[in-house]
Nucleic acid binder design. Structure first.
Lengths: 357, 357
DNA sequence: CTGTTAGCGCGTTCAG
DNA sequence: CTGAACGCGCTAACAG
């Protein structure tokens, strides 16, 4: 309080609101220099007389001092934040990853900034540009890059500028860019799933694909197709229904499917959320699941594991993967870009019972 | 000084690989003063000659200049961030709110920092302390405060310090604290739901309650009890099963329920996530839903609307509410704490069919 | 309208 | 080991 009054002496017009307590105030209160206060409060390598140190800590507590992170950041050149870019934080795929990122970041004393692209590439570029201004230690891009190469090139440049300024980029998606990457084996996972479905007796697949420009979705589609092709079954474009990469996308796709009177014995949705949307639509139309048609998803979203019939899918350790992204980026500073590949694990549940041919 | 001169850019084409481009660099490149560069690039009220302005913008683009937000924040006294505290970002309840917050914040040029308390009150205190250091414009606490008054008092102090330093706190939970608050009508919503269930013919409710120390959960339980009491049905402690406020909590509660051979005709889970967990457990035990027992949730989580049987619940506009929190806090600076009350809307679905008595 | 300069809060040399 | 002084990148008075 005394410190406060002394500070106010300098300004002619005193505002109602107190100015925040600064390190300067703490130093004065403790009767030491600014430098000593700084060295006592933050984790400096320098040693401080234990008595002084105690006095500073006491003063800080008494004044309820809160260090100004921005000031520290500008003095040190980098802030203590991890930036995370997702398509939609309300989508369980991304919120699972985000949970892992936040948890890992907190364990390392960092705060996570999250932004949403709403699946618009130009928006993604804008957001990366904005986040760069925070000078975060890490910039994590979750979700697949899109194929829009107009902005894709600009985005790449932006990311490279960010790294040349001392930041680190981590991609959670597919390999191919010169940054730390956690690659999801979308293709392999879908192929395995196709093989297994064949073994279970399925022969007439239809794919509920995502948007053609979403890389993750197209990889999954390709994996499915190859998996069936391995068994001599060609899944051509007529057996492919595109739609948004969302619950509603699945719902709509199922509507189209119903309209076309297809002969599918199994539907492969490219992710769980779409599968669930599709199931809702099919059920509305009176289609029995899995009696009339089987269905599968991808991701193994935790929140969706209780749908019924329970969904056959490919499990991805989303939350771990978010944590891994943090550690990967933080520990690889200066090194060459690292590539980690994550395998999907088949989970056969009730939505795809053995089919007696 | 020497270093600075060496950094001087001779050619505009060459990218600097070490130090980030500063406003100083842009000014020099454009041949204007630092102040003019600043005024041209940020949204200052001051006017700048159109030619200079253009030169500055061109120079900034050429150098790929990225403003340092930390520096701006320290100069202006406050950062352009909104801080959000949630229990668990992977929980759809919170991720829905978060989506609203992020969207609204972005629309106002702010970046959102998210932290997770993992439902531990001491952790919440730590995190608020940490977030305060960012000097955010807004600090939004979503999810209910717990009843742990030891840390509760400290938290209150921390929040007040934050506001006296010029920040603004918004609570999404229950009224009672001297901050902007978006109050959820948990009690009223549950009471209405109880009334409706009575009308539908139900007479023997069992409540899957959350943890006793979570205010939101206890409010809902109390609302249920009062609703039944209004119709002369007392729901005493023997008809109440406590558990975590999560999917697994519901799963476990259902296990207990099964073990006790209760005579319920309807189960009231205090949120959708618990309801879904409970449904999974019940189904495992061969209980027919809603044939053997009806079930309801609360929240109307979007991702869960496709479970089957579809879940009767009380709809909360979670995403809007997140956006509202942002606008409320940002627009109420200096004013008295505002209180907004949000009503829950009954949604009767297939999990509670009319019951022929 | 433009440029100069003094801070903002803090980390960190560099002398004592 | 301590403290005075400078710098970080930027904004906002204050002159011109």
């Amino acid at each position: 309080m005394v410190a406060k009054l002394q500070r106010n002496r300098l300004s002619t017009v005193v505002k109602d609101r107190d100015a925040p307590v600064t390190l300067q105030d703490v130093a004065r209160e403790a009767g030491v220099s600014l430098a000593t206060a700084s060295r006592s409060l933050n984790g400096s390598t320098r040693k401080v007389n234990e008595e002084y140190r105690a006095r500073v800590l006491a003063a800080a507590a008494r004044l309820n001092y809160s260090p100004n992170l921005s000031a520290q950041a500008v003095a040190k050149g980098r802030s203590r934040v991890v930036a995370l870019v997702v398509a939609d934080i309300a989508d369980p795929y991304f919120s699972s990853i985000a949970a892992g990122v936040v948890r890992a970041a907190e364990s390392r004393g960092l705060i996570v900034s999250i932004v949403m692209t709403e699946r618009r590439p130009e928006r993604e570029l804008e957001l990366v540009t904005a986040l760069r201004q925070q000078r975060p230690q890490l910039l994590i891009l979750a979700g697949s890059r899109s194929r829009n190469d107009a902005v894709g090139q600009r985005l790449l440049e932006e990311l490279q500028s960010f790294e040349s300024d001392g930041g680190r980029v981590v991609l959670i998606s597919q390999a191919g860019l010169p940054f730390d990457t956690i690659q999801l084996q979308n293709h392999a996972g879908c192929r395995k799933l196709a093989h297994r479905l064949f073994e279970l007796g399925y022969r007439r697949p239809v794919i509920f694909a995502g948007p053609p420009e979403v890389v993750t979705a197209t990889e999954r589609v390709a994996g499915f197709q190859e998996g069936w092709a391995d068994n001599g079954i060609e899944v051509d474009a007529t057996r492919l229904i595109h739609g948004d990469f969302t619950r509603d996308g699945g719902y709509v796709a199922a509507g189209e499917y119903l309209g076309q009177a297809m002969d599918a014995d199994v539907i492969l949705a490219v992710n769980d959320v779409m599968a669930v949307g599709a199931m809702a639509r099919l059920r509305e139309a009176g289609v029995a699941l899995p009696g009339d048609v089987a269905i599968t998803g991808f991701d193994d979203i935790h929140t969706l594991r209780d749908v019924s019939p329970s969904l056959t899918t490919v499990h991805l350790p989303l939350e771990n993967l978010g944590g891994e992204a943090v550690h990967l980026g933080l520990d690889s500073h200066g090194k060459e870009p690292q590539l980690t590949s994550v395998e999907g694990k088949l989970v056969i549940r009730q939505s795809t019972p053995t089919r007696s041919a």
